[in-house]
Nucleic acid binder design. Structure first.
Length: 296
DNA sequence: CTCGATCCCTGGACGC
DNA sequence: TGCGTCCAGGGATCGA
């Protein structure tokens, strides 16, 4: 599932592959994940993808200005969220179209930039000017760009669980379930711990762990669970380095205790019950999701 | 402010 | 081989 390192990998690949390319034409399939398909059809053809950036878990395709002079100074971009199963890759026109190909952009060099997303949990939107800046403002700081102080500021007064805070894109942008669990394991913090109850030195430890893990994951081109591939169609390798995520029942790589899975903030959370002690005063209604009912 | 529940969606895993 | 069921999860939304 594409989180910050995976989206960064895709953004770098697309920057290398398609920056400078003009979008000649656009073909849409299913559009229920697109904010306003008509605007895409009206605005994209003729624009050039000036550069490709990552913004949290979004890909930001920065576009050249509109033909109309009064609008040409506006920043314009195509926002793409890959959701769980989305991919955005350049392909040759002759290449067979994968099932669930929903957007095809013909590029100036003859290739096609294709968006494929079986579950359509992704999102696509053309935004410009104030709409674009307003949208981007909804999000918190990038965990790789924020300072330790800014990170602490974002969580130290919050009563929510630290796992929920890490996943909240308005707190920090780009962290998802995998890297939240990995950084909490690394910092030895229980996912249900409340932000406000974390001592400053533990927050600092989490900040360092998060940055280190994200940077290392970027170097390894992300985690390929499900079907994540980078812009060259290559899987990442960070999934081989997971210490907690997806390791229920397997021994903790520090202390051999069996990794547990509970639900925190509505998400599977993998942790070591020995290294990451249950905080005092936490109601332990956090159980494994709807376990084994359905008797009969 | 924070929570859980629900929905969106498809494919893969699993049981029989 | 095939069918039914469960489950994954980011994000929006709603009610408590």
């Amino acid at each position: 599932m594409p989180e910050l390192p995976e989206v960064e990998t895709v953004a770098r690949g697309l920057q290398r592959e398609i920056a400078g390319q003009r979008i000649v034409s656009l073909t849409l399939g299913k559009t229920d994940f697109i904010d306003n398909p008509e605007i895409l059809e009206a605005e994209l053809p003729g624009r050039t993808v000036e550069r490709v950036e990552r913004y949290g878990k979004f890909l930001l395709l920065r576009l050249s200005g509109a033909p109309e002079p009064e609008k040409s100074r506006e920043e314009a971009a195509l926002l793409v969220h890959l959701g769980m199963t989305g991919s955005l890759m350049p392909k040759g026109v002759q290449d067979e179209r994968a099932k669930h190909t929903h957007v095809v952009m013909l590029l100036g060099d003859g290739r096609e930039l294709r968006y494929v997303d079986p579950r359509r949990f992704g999102r696509m939107a053309y935004l410009a000017g104030k709409r674009l800046s307003d949208e981007l403002q909804r999000f918190g700081l990038d965990p790789l760009q924020m300072s330790a102080g800014e990170f602490r500021q974002a969580i130290h007064l919050r009563k929510a669980r630290i796992k929920a805070l890490l996943l909240d894109q308005s707190v920090v942008r780009g962290v998802g379930n995998i890297y939240a669990d990995e950084s909490l394991w690394s910092a030895k913090i229980h996912p249900a711990e409340l932000g406000a109850r974390l001592k400053p030195e533990r927050v600092a430890k989490l900040y360092k762990a998060l940055q280190k893990i994200l940077q290392r994951a970027i170097l390894l081109k992300g985690s390929s669970i499900a079907d994540f591939l980078d812009a060259d169609g290559m899987p990442g390798e960070y999934q081989l380095h997971h210490r907690a995520y997806g390791r229920e029942g397997k021994p903790c790589m520090r202390c051999k205790t069996s990794i547990r899975r509970i639900i925190v903030a509505g998400r599977s959370s993998y942790f070591c019950p020995n290294c990451q002690r249950t905080p005092r005063g936490i109601r332990r209604r956090a159980r494994v999701k709807r376990g084994r009912r359905r008797i009969r």
